[in-house]
């Protein structure tokens, strides 16, 4: 564990709390893509199956359980408690275009051709693109509530911090590198660049998040 990874994980935790706070206080999941949230549940369940057969640390297990539980809870809030505020007609990204390639990539690129390792690879590839339905929705509506942009920013910071974490590990752990996680991670972080540009130039200057028409 190093500082970059810890701060990254805390930023990930913060993003979930921000999202829950947004839904609870506005009593609405307007502006949140159900598809992206459902993809995160898929990601966490596929990756954290190792809870059953591998112990890394208490920190690791607690975080995994939290990510699975909170992501399922968010789906519940969107699908049941605040269902009327969820508008599927603007959440139109075709996720089969993400799932198909991720299945294919995980069958080709994995560290061992076993069910759990392929699922792990799949979860890494899927996480890298899971935000696309959300960004697509943002693009379509052209604006977002400030709190929603804080949620996305925290998620983006989490991904960005994993990059110095890998560099740090490469240096301190004698050349250790996880090519699958790094490649997918770089792609994932790249997806946030446009968003961050608007976030820093508008939202953090006190303006509303609005995309140019």
């Amino acid at each position: 564990m190093n500082l970059f990874r810890l701060l990254g994980d805390l930023s990930h935790l913060a993003s979930i709390f921000i999202l829950l706070h947004k839904i609870q206080t506005t009593r609405s999941c307007r502006g949140i893509s159900f598809k992206t949230q459902a993809l995160y549940v898929t990601v966490f369940v596929a990756r954290y199956l190792d809870l059953f057969y591998r112990y890394v640390s208490l920190y690791n297990s607690v975080m995994k359980l939290f990510f699975i539980a909170s992501s399922v809870y968010i789906l519940y809030l969107m699908k049941y408690k605040y269902r009327p505020t969820n508008d599927p007609s603007i959440d139109t990204f075709r996720i089969e275009y993400l799932l198909g390639p991720c299945v294919l990539l995980s069958l080709i690129f994995n560290y061992k051709f076993s069910v759990t390792e392929v699922l792990w690879s799949f979860s890494i590839f899927l996480e890298s693109v899971a935000i696309l339905p959300q960004l697509f929705m943002l693009q379509r509506t052209g604006e977002a509530e400030t709190i929603t942009t804080h949620y996305l920013a925290a998620l983006g910071v989490y991904r960005a911090l994993y990059i110095p974490n890998w560099i740090y590990r490469y240096i301190t752990e004698d050349g250790v590198v996880d090519p699958i996680a790094v490649t997918a991670g770089l792609v994932q972080t790249g997806l946030y660049i446009d968003f961050f540009y608007v976030y820093f130039t508008k939202v953090l200057q006190g303006q509303k998040f609005e995309l140019p028409a």
Binding site: R5, D9, H12, R47, D50, R54, V56, N60, M63, K64, F67, Y111, K112, E117, W120, Y162, N165, G175, V176, V177, D178, P179, A181
Partner: peptide
Amino acid sequence: NATEAQHDEL
């Protein structure tokens, strides 16, 4: 090992 899957990250 560089490519050995350790998966100690979240």
